[in-house]
Computed example of a mutant assay.
Amino acid sequence: MSSTYLPPELGESVHEVFYPDVQTTVNLFAIHLRSVGTDWDYPAHEHPKYELNYVTEGVQYMTINGTLYVQHAGELLLIPPGSVHSSQSRNGQGFTYFCMHFDIDDQLFLSLLARIKQVLFSADSPVTRQIEPVLHKLMSSAHDQSASAMVQRMQLQSAVFELFGHLWETVSQEAAQTFNDGYERIELAHMIRTRLQGLMSQQFKQGHEPDSHYGIDDIAAELGISPSHCNRVFKQVFGQSPRAVLSQMVLHEAKVLLGNPQLSVQNIAVMLGYKDIAHFSRQFKRWSGMSPSRYRQEQPALE
């Protein structure tokens, strides 16, 4: 049973630093390394996940949304969700490629990926150069016969998160050109989000009610910007206002606490800073579409 972070009583801490929360879920699908022959012709299809496709030998002819991409060895394709694509070998030559499909619930990461309109990355592009070593690590792990299935699974997950870290750095630089202020605007939005997480923790510790103690003005002052600029930059990058994201953080904490049967809904409302259970129940239902009690009852079915 999961449980949330319980902060110390006020006055106990001499010094503390809040690090960004890690609540990311990554789903990986159909990871494979495949060599194909001269008559390879995979029909047009689509899927709701990102596809990362890397050619190690030969040439792949990939048609994506009606556009033909000629992908040589060492080049990378990043295919967005919902893109209709097909693959072929031509000129009497086969090829070898590594492919993985992924979905990640990090909204900042997805917002950056969505801004990248480039699909094919050359072998000497910053994106390809940065993640190529991790791709080779992923491919080599498949040939490690000495490792157990669990060890291979953990190694795979470790390599994938390393890949996402490198991809984050390079894609951030690529996406910077879509903003007038460049990469600094993306970083500013990320700093605002980190402070929102700290604000959520402070509300949880001090018993402030989320709606009555928003704190965006304080965040803007700390960063030396106006509240309107703070809201505008954050929404440009995340597609949501800081208030909406803060509400999502409160909802997440509420769901985690509701997963603990030893806590009553009344206690959870108090822990989250609500003055009464009725207000908490109204807010929870507005955010999730059901009451806290019903969510708790249906939680096993939802998982």
Score class of each variant (00 low, 15 high):
F161E: 06
E51Q: 14
T194Q: 14
E12Q: 13
F204Y: 12
A189K: 04
R294A: 06
V256T: 15
V22I: 10
D41H: 11
E209Q: 12
Q299A: 15
S2F: 09
H279C: 11
Q88W: 02
Q152R: 15
R294V: 06
Q283L: 02
S172M: 10
L33W: 09
Y54W: 07
K117Y: 00
P242F: 06
S291A: 13
F238K: 05
D211G: 14
F98P: 04
S89Q: 04
D211M: 08
Q71H: 02
G224I: 05
S281W: 00
R115E: 04
Q203S: 11
F280E: 01
M1T: 15
S125F: 00
A114P: 02
T38E: 14
H279N: 12
L77C: 07
S146D: 11
V171N: 01
L10W: 04
M271W: 01
S228I: 14
L10C: 09
S141R: 04
N180T: 14
G215D: 04
S148W: 02
L246E: 07
E174I: 07
A142I: 09
A123S: 15
R195P: 03
G215S: 07
E16I: 12
L28Q: 00
D39C: 08
G259C: 10
S87E: 09
V237M: 07
F102D: 04
L167K: 05
L188S: 11
E303K: 09
S35N: 08
D217Y: 07
L113Y: 03
Q145T: 14
V265M: 01
I219A: 10
R243N: 03
P7D: 00
Y42I: 10
S291L: 00
S3T: 13
F284H: 03
S281T: 12
V59C: 11
I268E: 04
A123F: 04
H166W: 10
